[in-house]
Design a binder for these strands. Sequence first.
DNA 1: CTGTTAGCGCTTTCAG
DNA 2: CTGAAAGCGCTAACAG
Lengths: 330, 330
Amino acid sequence: MVTLEDVARQAGVSLATASRVLNGSTRQVGASLRAKVELAAAELGYRTNVAAQTLARGASNVIGLVVHDLTDPYFAAIADGAMRVAESQGLMVMIGTTHRDPQREIAYVSTLNAQRVRAVLLVGSRVTDPEMTRRLRTELDQYRESGGRVACVGQNLLGVDTVVPDNRLGAAELARALAGLGHRNFAILAGPDWLIAPRDRVEGFGAALEELGLPAPRVLHGSFDREGGYAAATQVSGVTCVFAVNDVMAVGALASFRDRGIRVPEDVSVAGFDDIFTLRDLVPSLSTVRLPLADMGVRALELALDPSGESRTEIVTGEVILRESTRGLG
Amino acid sequence: MVTLEDVARQAGVSLATASRVLNGSTRQVGASLRAKVELAAAELGYRTNVAAQTLARGASNVIGLVVHDLTDPYFAAIADGAMRVAESQGLMVMIGTTHRDPQREIAYVSTLNAQRVRAVLLVGSRVTDPEMTRRLRTELDQYRESGGRVACVGQNLLGVDTVVPDNRLGAAELARALAGLGHRNFAILAGPDWLIAPRDRVEGFGAALEELGLPAPRVLHGSFDREGGYAAATQVSGVTCVFAVNDVMAVGALASFRDRGIRVPEDVSVAGFDDIFTLRDLVPSLSTVRLPLADMGVRALELALDPSGESRTEIVTGEVILRESTRGLG
DNA sequence: CTGTTAGCGCTTTCAG
DNA sequence: CTGAAAGCGCTAACAG
């Protein structure tokens, strides 16, 4: 393992000088020494020991990213956005997937704290369990006390900068658009109640329906993924329109209806939420509420990296997009 | 920032003792002292400084993962597999996306080397450019000389442990299956020629056709993504069957045909490669060659972490799956 | 079982 | 502009 000292010796300069040329220092170094050091470093194949650097500097160049599930395109898109800004700033990203287990999220924050990452990004819906939220907050507070920065994509429950998709509003507008199509009787394919995002979508949708004087929707719960959508959809009957609280659940619903010989949109309309890019070529194409996923990741990391604020909330509104999976009734 | 020393002082023990209880040491510590240390650590909210630990130990607990594109479900699936084994071993993963730029791949290896990660996983097709391969190899060799472990998912061109999907064989078997359906005239929606995986698939498919005495397929090049598939498909005519070298290109092709009023599979059959999970509910469902993606990620990291080998090659064979997007011509 | 102590490799005052 | 030296926080002999 070649160290800075080896380089300094070979170049015939001091450790300090070698450090100054090889690592971004504000201090200037004379051209000839600089050249010598660079040559020596190249010859020896020197690679900075980042651990030593981090220890000496008291600050690392990595950011932590905690997501629920990387194979869910929702998270992949947000992560991609965040990673692009990380890369543009010369930061590495350390990633953890919780598989929707709040405890794991807490554990990751602790680990990332130990890593002394520059910032941590928590991506994904918060949970309703106040105890979990409290413990996570405690962990985050401790991390922040030691100078860590935190941002969240989800709901502002952690006292940190947050990018929050307006789930209630998006769902409400979707409900109004669907009602505008003539639908009166709805079913909602809801996610688990302990996740706030799907719950908000259910509530927003229901509230809008109520405002319009329409019958309350039938709410069917399932897991927040394709299987959950499939399972919940099997219980649907007697409605003209189904709202799945996210696109992957909607895909499950589509499959379920297909298996039951129910045509979409002829027999029943289906709408989702998120506008997952990978699903754009679905047939029938999915009506949904578009969220600027990659952008949310970008903004979240920007917030985390920008020291000039504290617990800022940036609301992102979704855009209703009606495609083939929903049809007008009359 | 509370340090081990603070904990030791508060607990009234030596630094060494505190270290032994708080960090996995083989050495035993008496129950009463152990309790004192744990109490002190909890009271103070102590968090190990991993950078210091890494420096002192000379070994880190993170692995590096380099993929082309995280929003491509192919990579997300493999990454997920690798991350699961990392998690099970208490390792964190640092991730980098190259967006298919070989130079970035080299740069990431260099950075990960600087981070002194325990192992690095290179996921994705190698390129044909020998100069790039050479430079990457040089960088990897340097990393390995200093004790780093490397594994690759793709082709064994780097002299490291590699999980290689048998692209030629998979494509050949697909060709035979399709020919078995009665198809004689094929077009291939090929990826860029500088990527080995798509090139191998084209060759394997073509070779099988030749063996069967069938006319050579028309090869249409496009980028290795949905857009590339769409674009290449617009030039298809006069064939009964189209082979897109991966599923996302096949999805593009499906969209293209739909836009042109060409029915699949009635007018033309379409097959892909990879069997992307997210696309399982496509209509028509896609015929393809299934690769055990998550598993490949698992095995690759296992290889990297298992010191008992050197440049092992583990071949993964795909399984032809015929679904609705291809039909028999008999 | 417990404590002392010498580093790990790099950064950063502080002098010159 | 350059060098000497004091740590950063933790681990791992080595001694007791």
